[in-house]
Design a protein around this nucleic acid. Structure first.
Lengths: 195, 195
DNA sequence: GTCTATAGAGCGATAGAC
DNA sequence: GTCTATCGCTCTATAGAC
C-alpha cells in the first residue's frame, strides 16, 4: 500500500519516463510492466494511465527518450575520439554497445513492431536521429552512400550483438580478456571499418 | 477443452521439446509459456510437469535440442562452403544468423543466466559443442588461440546482432539491398575475417 | 490528478481422480 | 501418465470516489 495520504509529484509523466528508462534496462521490453513502474515511482497502478493511454504508449515515450540520449552519446563519443574518421565511427559503435548494455534499449526497441504500429512521430524522429548520426560518420569513411549504409548496418549489428550477448551472460562466461564490452565492440568495429 | 477422452502420445517429452522449438522461435524465451506449449501439443497444462519439474527445466531441454541442431547447421554450412578456411568460417557465421532468425534461439538462450542456474549437464555440453565448432573453424584462419577466440566472439556478436535486428524489424525497415539476413551476415563475416 | 477497488485474463504449479 | 479443477500471483485497464 504505497499511497499513504496524497501523492503529488509535480510532473508524473517525466518521472515515469525517467524511472522507466531504468526499469527497461533491468527487465527488457518484454518484461516491462506499467504496474512495476508505478510502484517504483510511488504512485498507484492506475495513475500512469491518466497520462499515457496504454502500456505501449508509455513504452514508446520511454524509448523516445532513450533514443535521444543514445544519439547524444554517439555524438559525444565521436567528438571525444579525435579527428580520424575511422576512429570516430569506431568510437560511436563502441558507445552504442555501451549504451545498450547500460540501458537495455537500442534500435531494436525503437524499431520494434509493437511500437511501430503506434505511428509515434517523436519516436520515429528520435530513431532517425540515431541513424543519421551513424550514417554521417560512416559517410566520412565510405564514399558510396550505399556502402556507407551497409557499413552502418554491419556496425549496428556488431554493437547490438555485443550488447545482447553481454546482457545474457555469454561474454562473461567465455571471457577472453578483461576488457569491457564497449572496448571490445570498438576494437571489432575498427577491424570492420578497415576491411 | 482439448482433452476429449484419453490422450495418449507415446512420447510426450519429445513432442514438447519439438513443438517447444517452434514456440520459442515465435515468442522468444521471455514469452515462452508452458501452458501455451501444452495447448499446442494437445495436452492439459498439467501434463508437462509430470516430465519436467518446472518451466525452466523444460526450457533448458528445448534449448539443448536447439543447440544440438545449431551445431549441426554450422557444421553443414562449413562443409558446403568448400575448402577455403575463411569462406568456411564466414558461411558458418551466416548459418548462425540464419538459425537464430528462424528458431529464435542462439547462444544467448543457451547461456542465459536463468538456465545456467540449473547446472544442466546436457545443455552445457550442447553449448560447448557449438562453441567448439566455431573455434575449430576460426583456428584455421588465426594461428594464435587467443586471436581465434576473439574472432569467434566478434563473429558471434555480428551474427547475433543481425538475427536480433532482423527479428525486431530493423533490417526490413532500413533495407539496403534485397539480400536476406544470412547472406548479409556472411558478407559482413567475410570482411571481419579478412581484417 | 491521484486514489481505491475491481473486472478479466494468463500463467506456474499442485492435488486428487482415473 | 494424463485429466479436471483449483489456488495464488501478476498484469492491463477501467470505474468511481475525492
Amino acid at each position: 500500500m504505497p499511497g499513504r495520504g496524497r501523492y503529488h509529484h509535480g510532473d508524473l509523466p517525466a518521472a515515469l519516463v525517467g524511472a522507466g528508462l531504468g526499469l527497461l534496462g533491468e527487465v527488457g521490453p518484454a518484461g516491462f510492466s506499467v504496474a512495476e513502474l508505478a510502484r517504483r515511482v510511488g504512485v498507484s497502478t492506475a495513475a500512469p494511465y491518466r497520462h499515457f493511454g496504454d502500456r505501449d504508449r508509455l513504452l514508446a515515450a520511454i524509448a523516445t527518450r532513450a533514443a535521444a540520449e543514445l544519439a547524444a552519446a554517439l555524438q559525444a563519443a565521436a567528438r571525444d575520439a579525435g579527428p580520424d574518421p575511422a576512429e570516430r565511427l569506431a568510437a560511436a559503435t563502441g558507445a552504442y554497445a555501451g549504451f545498450v548494455t547500460a540501458h537495455g534499449v537500442g534500435l531494436d526497441v525503437v524499431f520494434t513492431p509493437a511500437l511501430r504500429r503506434l505511428d509515434d512521430e517523436d519516436l520515429a524522429r528520435a530513431g532517425r536521429a540515431v541513424m543519421d548520426e551513424l550514417i554521417g560518420l560512416a559517410r566520412e569513411v565510405r564514399t558510396s552512400p550505399a556502402e556507407a549504409l551497409r557499413l552502418v548496418e554491419q556496425l549496428v549489428a556488431l554493437a547490438h550483438g555485443y550488447a545482447t550477448l553481454d546482457r545474457d551472460g555469454f561474454l562473461t562466461a567465455d571471457r577472453v580478456t578483461d576488457e569491457d564490452t564497449p572496448t571490445r565492440a570498438t576494437r571489432a568495429a575498427r577491424a570492420m571499418i578497415g576491411a
